[in-house]
Design a protein around this nucleic acid. Structure first.
Lengths: 206, 206
DNA sequence: TTTTATACTAATCATATTGACAGTATGTAT
DNA sequence: ATACATACTGTCAATATGATTAGTATAAAA
């Protein structure tokens, strides 16, 4: 990747910030105004340099048609998620690229995001499964659920997270807590429904 | 929130999709072309209706100045993350807007993402804190850590997640597992360092 | 029955915006 | 010395775009 001058980097950053804040690229004259240029040509020259070096694209024929290339997004941002680092060899900084095994991207890690929702868990009925009071469980919305999987059940209007076992006639909602007992409900009960299967847990510590 | 007609919903969806795919709003004429209108006025009318009903904003004086309001973003549910739903009243579909309390956005929920990294946890030394084998812990990189907080320690090149207590002379790495004992290390040990404080846990179930 | 909202066609106007032309000046690599 | 990239000023034509005026038709609400 070709090196950018300080000025070009400034201008690329301005364009990226503008795109993030305005959901739209700046006009050439807005770039010129921002940097105090009295001619749009000055901004055009910088933009053309950035296009030539592979950091910008110009969508021809439309207003505000500047777009960042993937390289530019990498340079100015880093929206791939949170880096996952592996074992750390002595001496190397933790976030050195050598350690990065991938990225945690919540928009991808639980599969197709359509049909996912999250519920905040209240109570400690699932502590043995590592689900604590205040955690969010990620749920794939579906009345079908693997037998014995952890899911969200709606009983009389209340949402509850439990292991769900069905045998055709009755449903057992089994907590993962030694101090609590399973709940058994008739399958045909009108006040019962399954909201979906838990596919993830997210916790904000403290 | 005022109800949208089918046509208005279609047009709002088109605008939202266009914004996502092009990093820019469509021009009025592009909306008209997409729907086969022979006059831009038809698209203008729909857009004005959406503005009046609170789903769109027009940034005056610029090209491609259409923006989605928060309500519209909720309606078309773009990239804000996974919706968090609250209590569910009988009859209403789970993902109805009425239930949505917010969105889980990993890029925002742990604070400034700069300096965050994730480590996959091996072993069960922290099960009592709800951190299980295979979980990812989100770590805020810093050698400073609240006394007694859960953090990542590097001991002889290995990363380990423990509660970390320091008293100036020695460091105690305390597991959250009744079957395991604390490790005590001299503060001056050259093979020891703190990687950061755990601020979150993310688990992919099954 | 009258009004109001929806859903358009057709044509025109004003302005936002880009792109190009014609220069100047400075520093750097060959 | 002679290219060449950078870093600008100033102006103008062409086109992209939003906004408006004038009108048609349908259906629902007052």
């Amino acid at each position: 990747m070709e090196q950018l001058t300080d000025k070009q980097h400034e201008i690329l950053t301005f364009i990226a910030d503008y795109l993030r804040d305005h959901q739209s690229a700046p006009a050439i004259r807005e770039i010129a105004d921002h940097f105090g240029f009295s001619s749009p040509k000055a901004a055009t020259d910088h933009v053309n340099a950035l296009v030539r070096k592979g950091y910008l694209l110009k969508v021809a024929g439309i207003s505000r048609g500047l777009r960042l290339t993937a390289d530019a997004e990498e340079l100015v941002r880093g929206d791939e998620g949170i880096p996952v680092v592996g074992d750390v060899a002595a001496g190397l900084p933790i976030l050195a690229i050598e350690h990065i095994q991938g990225f945690l991207d919540m928009n991808a890690m639980f599969g197709n995001r359509k049909g996912l929702y999250a519920v905040r868990v209240r109570g400690n009925s699932m502590v043995n499964a590592g689900i604590h009071d205040g955690d969010h469980v990620i749920v794939r919305q579906s009345p079908m659920i693997e037998n014995g999987a952890i899911g969200v059940a709606y009983v009389e209007g209340d949402a509850t997270v439990k292991r769900i076992y069905r045998d055709g006639k009755s449903v057992r909602l089994v907590p993962e807590n030694d101090a609590m007992d399973p709940i058994v409900i008739d399958e045909t009960c009108p006040d019962f429904s399954v909201g979906g299967q838990v596919v993830g847990v997210v916790r904000n510590v403290r």
